[in-house]
Simulated assay, not measured.
Amino acid sequence: MGAWQLLMVGLVMLLGLVGVLLPGVPGPWLVWAAMLWWSMHVQSGLAWVLLVGSTVVLLVNQAVVWLLPPRRVRGVGVTRRMAVFAGAGALVGFFLLPVLGAIPGFIGGIYGSERHRLGGHGPAVTSTRAVMRAVGTSVLVELFGCLLVVGAWLGAVFWG
């Protein structure tokens, strides 16, 4: 696979990660489609294992998201800025503490956004709890599954 195709697969995966945070964009499907494209072109044993593994992870991910309570965005105060902070926090946490760091990074991003908006620790903690109860858990589960797939792909590209 050439460098340009590899770059395009990476960009589609990045779009899928951003799509998890944006309503109406099928983030996990984009990540899976990029993995499928890469596997079809590389055609190695590792590529097929990653395709099957990512399919299982994303299917289990969707089942868990469906079992969670529905998202209640209205009335909680979720903004685009908060989504950007949460996504950036998850990405930073994912790379600082591989895989597991995405969870505290996501929550820390929400807290940072709320701390900036509200100005104090107490109101920011209260708002972060409310956001996590309303929408954060389902978004976090979906983002975590996609980050696992992207992380496995990055590992295969760089070290496989």
Results as ranks from 00 to 15, higher is better:
Met13Phe: 07
Ile103Ser: 13
Gly93Trp: 10
His41Lys: 10
Pro23Thr: 00
Gly89Pro: 00
Ser138Asp: 06
Phe95Asp: 06
Ser44Lys: 08
Gly19Ser: 07
Thr126Trp: 15
Ala90Asp: 05
Leu143His: 08
Ala63His: 12
Pro69Ser: 02
Ala83Trp: 02
Trp66Phe: 12
Arg117Ile: 08
Gly112Tyr: 05
Ser127Phe: 13
Val131Ser: 00
Ala3Tyr: 12
Ser113Ala: 06
Ser113Asn: 09
Ser127Ala: 07
Pro28Lys: 15
Arg115Gln: 12
Val57Gly: 09
Arg74Glu: 15
Gln62Ser: 14
Val84Pro: 01
Val92Ile: 12
Thr137Ile: 12
Thr79Ser: 00
Pro98Leu: 08
Val78Gly: 03
Val73Met: 09
Val31Ser: 02
Ile110Thr: 11
Ser54Lys: 12
Gly19Phe: 11
Phe95Glu: 09
Glu142Ser: 08
Gly151Ile: 08
Ala102Leu: 08
Ala102Asp: 07
Ser138Lys: 11
Ala47Phe: 10
Leu154Met: 15
Val150Arg: 10
Gln62Glu: 12
Val12Asp: 12
Phe94His: 07
Leu22Gln: 09
Ala90Trp: 01
Leu50Cys: 14
Val92Asn: 15
Leu68Glu: 02
Val18Cys: 05
Arg133Ala: 12
Gly87Ser: 00
Gly24Asp: 03
Ala34Phe: 00
Val76Ala: 06
Val65Leu: 09
Val64Asn: 15
Trp29Ile: 03
Gly112Asn: 01
Met35Pro: 04
Trp32Ser: 02
Val84Ile: 05
Val84Gly: 00
Met8Ser: 00
Val12Pro: 15
Val52Met: 04
Gly24Cys: 08
Phe95Ser: 07
Trp153Tyr: 06
Trp153Met: 03
Ser39Met: 07
Thr128Gln: 01
Val49Cys: 14
Gly136Val: 06
Cys146Asn: 07
Leu148Gln: 11
Gly27Tyr: 12
Val9Met: 02
Leu11Ala: 13
Pro23Ile: 01
Gln5Cys: 06
Leu67Ser: 05
Val56Thr: 12
Leu148Gly: 05
Gly75Asp: 04
Gly101His: 11
Phe106Glu: 02
Gly122Thr: 12
Ala88Gly: 08
Pro70Gln: 02
Val9Pro: 01
Val65Gly: 06
Met40Ala: 12
Leu22Val: 13
Pro98His: 04
Leu143Asn: 05
Val42Asn: 02
Val56Asp: 11
Phe106Met: 04
Leu11Ile: 07
Thr126Leu: 13
Pro28Asn: 14
Ile110Asn: 07
Val76Asn: 03
Leu7Phe: 13
Leu100His: 09
Phe106Asp: 06
Pro26Gly: 03
Phe144Asp: 01
Leu140Pro: 07
Val150Met: 03
Ala102Glu: 12
Phe94Asn: 04
Leu15Thr: 04
Ser44Met: 13
Val125Lys: 13
Gly122Arg: 15
Phe144Gln: 13
Leu51Cys: 12
Leu67Pro: 01
Leu100Asn: 09
Val20Arg: 06
Gly16Lys: 02
Leu58Thr: 10
Leu59Asp: 00
Met1Leu: 03
Gln43Val: 05
Gly119Glu: 09
Gln62Pro: 10
Trp4His: 13
Leu68Trp: 00
Gly2Pro: 15
Gly120His: 13
Gly145Cys: 06
Ala156Val: 11
Met35Ser: 03
